[in-house]
Amino acid sequence: MQTPLELAFKNVTPTDEIKALVQEKVDHLEQFADQITSCHVYIRAPHNSQKKGNLYEVTIEVRVPGDELVVHHQQNDTAEHEHLKVAVRDAFASMAREIKRWKQKIGGDVKTHDGPLQGKIVEIHHDQGYGQIIATDNRLVYFHKNSVVDGDFDQLQTRDTVELVVQTDESEIGPQASTVRPISALKYNPAG
């Protein structure tokens, strides 16, 4: 990025853990799209209300050549946003989708494929926060609990089917999923 990350908090105590999580998610966006020129992240919690818990709002503004992409997860979006890490994760997952659409739009990239990559969980370590998936293209793919969207990592079990996005840059441990989404049933069998 040409401009360093700007991170602002309102009614939220900024912790090193949350700052590190945001930086990790921004770094991931940069690997996904190197055209990002700046990123602004705003994390807000409303004042205490009569409702159950405080729900966090996360706004992400990403500037790319010729455009500005904005994701705003409001406090009433979902009950899971009582947890700041979940609200941050969901907002960055939405931004990754926005960047993907932007890249397809500017590149005239119209993909013709049968759908997202799918697989089955073959190993999961709830206590250590990671697992492995055998994908439909027969790759063994590592995933971290922070990559799970639309579901709860602790609810996942071996043999569960998922959709996944594999990072383009392979890590030292091999292919790694940037996004893992639980789905109902495997729709493609790589064995034929």
Score class of each variant (00 low, 15 high):
Ala91Cys: 07
Ile99Gly: 04
Ile106Tyr: 05
Val62Arg: 01
Val70Asn: 06
Glu61Gln: 15
Gly107Met: 01
Gln75Phe: 12
Lys100Cys: 02
Asp90Glu: 12
Val64Lys: 04
His83Tyr: 11
Lys100Arg: 15
Ile106Trp: 06
Val71Arg: 09
Lys103His: 08
Trp102Leu: 01
Val64Tyr: 07
Phe92Leu: 04
Glu61Met: 12
Asp67Pro: 00
Val64Arg: 05
Arg101Ala: 10
Asp90Ile: 02
Met95Ile: 01
Lys103Leu: 14
His73Leu: 13
Leu84Lys: 01
His81Cys: 06
Val64Phe: 06
Pro65Phe: 05
Ile106Ser: 00
Arg63Trp: 04
Val88Gly: 09
Lys100Thr: 12
Asp77Pro: 00
Ala79Tyr: 12
Lys85His: 13
Val62Lys: 03
Arg97Phe: 09
Gln75Glu: 15
Ala93Leu: 02
His73Thr: 14
Asn76Cys: 06
Ala93Glu: 09
Val86Gly: 00
Gln75Ile: 07
Leu84Val: 10
His72Ala: 13
Gln75Leu: 10
Val88Pro: 02
Ala96Ile: 00
Glu80Lys: 11
Ile99Asp: 07
Arg101Phe: 10
Lys105Asp: 15
Pro65Gly: 07
Gln74Ile: 11
Val70Gln: 03
Val70Thr: 11
Val71Pro: 03
Lys103Trp: 02
Val71Phe: 06
Gly66Ala: 03
Glu82Val: 11
Ala93Ile: 01
Arg63Met: 10
His72Pro: 00
Val88Asn: 07
Thr78Leu: 10
Asp67Val: 00
Glu98Met: 07
Val86Tyr: 11
Ile106Phe: 02
Val86Gln: 10
Asp90Cys: 04
Ala79Asp: 15
Ala93Trp: 05
Ile99Ala: 03
Glu82Asn: 13
Val64Cys: 02
Leu84Tyr: 05
Gly66Met: 05
Gln104Val: 00
Ala91Gln: 07
Gln75Val: 10
Lys105Val: 06
Ala87Lys: 01
Leu69Trp: 03
Lys105Ala: 14
Phe92Arg: 01
Glu61Pro: 00
Met95Asp: 08
Lys85Trp: 07
His83Lys: 14
Glu82Asp: 14
His83Met: 09
Ser94Ile: 00
Lys105Ile: 03
Pro65Leu: 06
Arg101Val: 09
Ile106Gln: 11
Lys100Leu: 09
Lys100Gly: 08
Lys85Asn: 14
Gln74Met: 13
Val71Glu: 14
Gly107His: 08
Glu80Thr: 12
Val71Lys: 05
Gly107Gln: 03
Pro65Tyr: 08
His72Tyr: 10
Phe92Asp: 04
Asp67Glu: 13
Trp102Gln: 06
His72Trp: 10
Lys105Gln: 14
Val70Phe: 05
Lys105Met: 10
Lys100Glu: 15
Asp67Asn: 12
Asp90Gly: 07
Arg89Trp: 03
Gln75Ser: 14
Val64Pro: 04
Gly107Thr: 01
Val71Cys: 08
Ala79His: 12
Ala87Phe: 04
Val86Leu: 14
His72Asp: 14
Lys85Val: 11
Ser94Pro: 00
Gly66Thr: 03
Lys100Phe: 11
Gly107Pro: 02
Gly66Tyr: 04
Ile106His: 05
Asn76Gly: 08
Ala91Leu: 07
Gly107Tyr: 10
